[in-house]
């Protein structure tokens, strides 16, 4: 609890320019990340979780742009900083990212050693011997032997490639690492291995992770706190215990998403689901963005946007049913 906030995001807006108008992919969100914790970003596809991730590196994928807000990283707002400076001292130095599918994007004609060397030397010009030492150190951190350096990407399995990508993201000793669906394309057993690796790294290197996935079950294993997003807004933020514990989540969306997540060791006759589809973000619905699919909808939900409010310690909910005023 005393741990300081390494990253704080205030009123962040990321829009995508299209011919039909701006897509409000991330619309006014506030959250923070404490040093040494893992924050999970969950939501359906198109909810803005990956957009949030890339915005934190100040590199939203075009035609996206940061339309406003503050990203305070290690006590410094990075929004006004120039691109050259970001490249020089923020990106990869303080915050890095494991992109979705990055393991399949390793240049096939270079050896792993050469690929990693290139990344390292572009940021920190140094002689080969020294660079090699650093690479070996990080390869060992992620549980790979030294001789991997002379291998080509196609000679490695999916899990090994993902480990290489993770090692590459750690080179410059960043404080925050964003992992975008790092386990999605992997088999269950390998998934578990990577999750374990991330946990070990967090302990060993005192890292803070933002773990982006669509799967609530994976988050339960990885994240200290879970942030559920829906249609560009945060629906609920709670600790692992608050979301997955006895009491269960408070936001109707989280509740129903959790109910739709199949559990292996529980016999269910019928899985729950949420009818309908997420709204169009060019012209989002008035009021709560979930109200069209919500089964606990009230009149107020249709007209007024519920604010993200603290309902108990570390537990934020954006729902009119959960605010203190409503009760």
């Amino acid at each position: 609890m005393d741990k300081r906030k390494i990253l704080e995001v205030k009123n962040l807006k990321v829009f995508y320019k299209t011919s039909m108008g701006d897509v409000r992919a991330v619309d006014n969100i506030d959250f923070f990340l404490r040093s040494g914790e893992t924050l999970g970003l969950v939501g359906e596809s198109g909810c803005g979780k990956t957009t949030t991730g890339t915005a934190l590196l100040k590199m939203p994928s075009p035609p996206g742009y940061i339309a406003g807000g503050k990203i305070i990283l290690d006590g410094e707002d990075i929004i006004p900083i120039s691109e050259t400076e970001i490249r020089k001292r923020i990106r990869w130095e303080k915050i890095s990212m494991v992109f979705q599918g990055a393991m399949n994007c390793l240049t096939p004609v270079y050896t792993i050693g050469k690929l990693m060397m290139e990344t390292l030397q572009t940021h920190r010009p140094m002689d080969k011997e020294k660079a090699k030492k650093i690479i070996v150190k990080y390869l060992n951190y992620v549980g790979l032997p030294d001789h991997i350096m002379s291998r080509y990407p196609h000679e490695l399995s999916g899990g090994m490639k993902q480990r290489v990508v993770i090692a590459t993201s750690l080179f410059l000793e960043p404080k925050v690492v964003i992992c975008d669906e790092p386990t999605t394309a992997l088999d269950v057993v390998v998934q578990a291995q990577i999750i374990n690796l991330l946990k070990e790294l967090k302990e060993k290197l005192n890292l803070s992770f933002i773990f982006i996935t669509h799967d609530l079950a994976t988050e339960a294993e990885v994240s200290d706190r879970i942030q559920v997003m829906y249609a560009g807004k945060i629906a609920e933020i709670g600790t692992n215990q608050q979301i997955y514990g006895e009491q269960g989540p408070m936001h109707p969306y989280t509740k129903r998403l959790l109910a739709a997540t199949p559990r292996l060791h529980e016999e269910v006759e019928e899985l729950a689901f949420i009818p309908g589809t997420p709204p169009d973000l060019i012209d989002p619905p008035r009021g709560c963005r979930f109200h069209l699919r919500c089964n606990e909808v009230m009149e107020k939900c249709k007209t007024e946007v519920p604010p993200l409010e603290l309902v108990e310690e570390d537990h934020y909910v954006a729902c009119w049913r959960c605010t203190k005023n409503a009760e």
Binding site: T218, A220, Y244, G245, T261
Partner: peptide, 10 residues
């Protein structure tokens, strides 16, 4: 190895 949405495993 399957992940399950249950608290206390983190």
């Amino acid at each position: 190895a399957v992940c399950e949405p249950i608290a206390g495993k983190v």
